Amino acid sequence: MSETMVYTCDICKKSKSKDDLARITVKADGIRMKNVGYSGIKIDICPECLKRKGFVVDFPENKEEQEQATLKNKATLEDKIYDFLVDMGVAFTE
Rank of each mutant, 00 (worst) to 15 (best):
S15L: 03
S15I: 15
S15C: 09
S17G: 06
D19W: 06
D19Y: 05
D19S: 12
D20W: 03
D20I: 03
D20P: 01
L21N: 01
L21D: 00
L21A: 02
A22P: 02
R23W: 02
I24Y: 10
I24R: 03
K27Q: 11
I31S: 06
R32I: 07
M33E: 14
M33K: 12
K34R: 14
K34C: 08
K34A: 13
K34G: 10
K34N: 15
N35L: 14
N35F: 06
G37H: 09
G37T: 15
G37R: 12
G37E: 12
S39N: 04
I41A: 02
K42Y: 02
K42W: 00
K42M: 08
K42F: 03
K42L: 06
K42D: 14
I43M: 04
D44H: 14
C46H: 04
C46V: 07
P47Q: 07
E48Q: 05
E48C: 00
E48A: 03
L50N: 01
K51N: 09
R52N: 13
R52L: 13
R52K: 15
G54W: 07
G54C: 10
G54F: 05
F55I: 07
V56E: 08
D58P: 00
F59L: 12
F59P: 00
F59S: 07
E61K: 09
E61I: 10
E61D: 15
N62P: 04
N62C: 10
E65F: 05
E65P: 01
E65T: 13
Q66I: 15
Q66M: 15
Q66Y: 13
Q68D: 07
Q68C: 00
A69L: 07
A69G: 06
A69E: 09
A69K: 02
T70E: 14
L71K: 14
L71H: 08
L71F: 05
L71Y: 05
K72E: 13
K72Y: 00
K72T: 12
N73W: 11
A75Q: 14
A75P: 01
T76Q: 05
T76N: 10
E78C: 05
E78Q: 10
D79R: 06
D79F: 05
D79W: 03
K80T: 13
K80N: 07
K80G: 03
I81A: 02
I81L: 11
Y82A: 03
Y82Q: 04
F84E: 00
F84Q: 00
V86G: 07
V86F: 06
D87K: 00
M88F: 01
V90K: 15
